[in-house]
Nucleic acid binder design. Sequence first.
DNA 1: AAATTTCGCTACGCTTGCGTAGCGAAACGG
DNA 2: CCGTTTCGCTACGCAAGCGTAGCGAAATTT
Lengths: 196, 196
Amino acid sequence: MRDPSADRIDPRAVRSRRRAVDAALELIRELGAGRTTMEAIAARSGAAKTTLYRQFGDLETLLFAAFESLTGPPAIPVAAGVVADVRSWLHQFAEVLTTDEFAPWVPAMIDVAERDEHGHALAVDFAARRRLPLRTRLSVALDAGELAADTDIDTLVSMLVGPLFYRRFISRQATSFAFVDQVVDSALGSLVTSSA
Amino acid sequence: MRDPSADRIDPRAVRSRRRAVDAALELIRELGAGRTTMEAIAARSGAAKTTLYRQFGDLETLLFAAFESLTGPPAIPVAAGVVADVRSWLHQFAEVLTTDEFAPWVPAMIDVAERDEHGHALAVDFAARRRLPLRTRLSVALDAGELAADTDIDTLVSMLVGPLFYRRFISRQATSFAFVDQVVDSALGSLVTSSA
DNA sequence: AAATTTCGCTACGCTTGCGTAGCGAAACGG
DNA sequence: CCGTTTCGCTACGCAAGCGTAGCGAAATTT
């Protein structure tokens, strides 16, 4: 009997997993999570269904693995004054929402989160990680006295990113440069301490 | 040959349509649009598939009919000062987001809008109709000089409802009374003319 | 290098969903 | 009322997807 504690890694399994996850991401983007099937993932990834079942157990697990493969850490805003930092971060974020980096999968995640218990947890976690840099930067500002002492950070985050999400996924209006600026000014305007 | 211009209405067809739409709504809520099938709608509505195909042509049309059956006109804010009116409307809206009136179908619509051309149009239209009362109220305020003359109404609307959508569908945090108040204050605070 | 485990494929049976053909029954028009 | 039209159902064939059994090939251990 071999050592059970040693995590063996068969290179074939690794390749299969990666290909399956990539194929799943493509299919979710094209068809949505609901219409993505094991059969299609197997076909597109080139792997056999048996392999996928052995690697992931079931479709849900595979889809979630695909979602989690998206969670690259977002850029961290540097320090140069809250307003300026937040402004540049939010502009960057607005830009990201127009690319294929993660925006195309957000609707699928929103959908899954509404109906599936695990999906709910996944989405909550994903969102929390995504906004962490912004949240951290605001926390630092609060501690440094750059923001009014009674500022609620979570509320502030929602007021900053909420309008962007709304425009991208709900009203589907364009987010102009001026729009982002106004959001920043409005959200932070009354909170920045005059001293800073 | 009968008069082709007379829109005959067979009561059986009317019943079938209504039942099908209701069943579709239930299924979309439970499974998402992607997993909702003709078979399931037929089974739950009690109608035969043939009937559904005759009435709607295809699944997409039926699903869209279901979505559109949701679009009840939202309440119209009355006049009593912009800030107060908007505040009460937004509190009411936050409440609606916690009920089964239309919130459970928003994720499905977001998902469909991202992938389907018709779905996109439907969602845009739906969102526009939903925010119309708020938009109108703000327009009135602008015309009345209650808001700064250079105010962009659409931006303002996004800053008001965006944070609520974000909390309900993305971060899935609770929207407290205080949260809504802060959103209103922040968005309108600097815009209301001191005279009003 | 030999023994052993894991991998990945083909092939299969089963279930679900699709979309239609054809037939009585119900609703409408004269 | 009586002909005509529409409705709704049962029944069907077909395609897609599911999940697994069994077997050679590849990788790992000793």
